[in-house]
């Protein structure tokens, strides 16, 4: 066979793979939106859950989801970025950093139910937070850490060494080099990691059932229990309470995730243009 022919086959095969992937994705999204959107209304979004989810709205779950995502990011982002900065800028590559990195990679591969169990034993029982937004967020944060650390690390490493030397050459300190140049320049990459983990937090179920509980009420403090949209969806779908309500919740969930992704993409784009 001549190379030209092989080339043709390759591009057809690759193109097909791309099309299949894309159509499966689009199918899923459209199916859920098609099934769910008709029942999504202002009322659906703003009223409490009634009859265990058979009727009423999903307002409490939206609030819980927001709290969980926001709080877990607030906990995980500083810790994760701090760890990444420490690993890349403040230590030289040695056994300790390699162990930390290896452990982080292992953590990333652990199923979320295990994190849920840990969160239950440690945050819910041992620290006595009970089933609560706080326990759920802390658990989510531990799940997010590996992703945030690794993506931040990569983003920080991608910042050219020369930028650091400019700072040092002008008499700046390491801390100034990190805060003035390295982090701003790595920001888009770091943000990508945060968005990815936020997506994971918003769609997490197993770990949250154990830690944030399943309360049908709107959480009033970080110590209230609350179910996120994903947990709500999982429960009412699994227990056959209402498939239609489940699809409605799923549709809202998908739209939420899309909004997060699109807006962060736009933000990133604007930011990169400013910094390029």
């Amino acid at each position: 066979m001549n190379p030209k022919f092989i080339q043709k086959i390759a591009s057809v095969a690759l193109g097909t793979a791309m099309l299949v992937t894309l159509s499966v994705l689009i199918f899923i999204i459209f199916y859920i939106l098609y099934q769910g959107l008709p029942i999504v209304s202002m009322e659906f979004l703003t009223t409490p859950i009634r009859d265990m989810g058979k009727s009423g709205g999903i307002f409490p779950t939206i609030i819980s989801t927001f709290y969980l995502a926001f709080l877990s990011i607030c906990i995980a982002a500083p810790l994760g970025i701090g760890t990444a900065v420490f690993l890349t800028e403040y230590t030289r590559e040695n056994t300790v950093t390699r162990v930390i990195r290896f452990t982080t990679d292992c953590l990333a591969g652990i199923p979320s139910i295990i994190f849920g169990l840990f969160g239950f034993v440690f945050f819910v029982i041992y620290l006595g937070f009970g089933w609560s937004i706080l326990a759920g967020s802390l658990t989510l944060a531990t799940m997010m850490l590996p992703t945030i650390i690794r993506t931040s690390e990569e983003a920080i490493r991608a910042v050219p060494e020369g930028f650091r030397e400019v700072t040092y050459g002008l008499g700046g300190s390491k801390w100034q080099s990190v805060t003035e140049i390295v982090l701003p320049k790595a920001f888009p990459g770091i943000l990508t990691g945060i968005i990815l983990s936020m997506g994971r937090a918003v769609s997490e179920t197993a770990a949250l059932i154990f830690t944030a509980g399943m309360s049908l009420h709107t959480p009033v403090s970080v110590l209230s229990s609350g179910r996120s949209m994903a947990v709500h969806f999982y429960t009412i779908a699994r227990e056959g309470i209402s498939l239609q309500m489940a699809f409605g919740t799923a549709a809202v969930l998908i739209v939420t995730i899309s909004i997060i992704n699109i807006s962060s993409y736009l933000l990133m784009h604007k930011y990169m243009r400013k910094y390029a």
Binding site: G162, E165, V166, L170, I181, K185
Partner: peptide, 20 residues
């Protein structure tokens, strides 16, 4: 060291303008 480097500037082969 920071005072020293303030006093001793350096220019490299490849110019490194900061992205700003």
């Amino acid at each position: 060291v920071n005072d020293l480097r303030k006093k001793v500037g350096i220019i490299f082969a490849t110019p490194v303008p900061l992205p700003m």
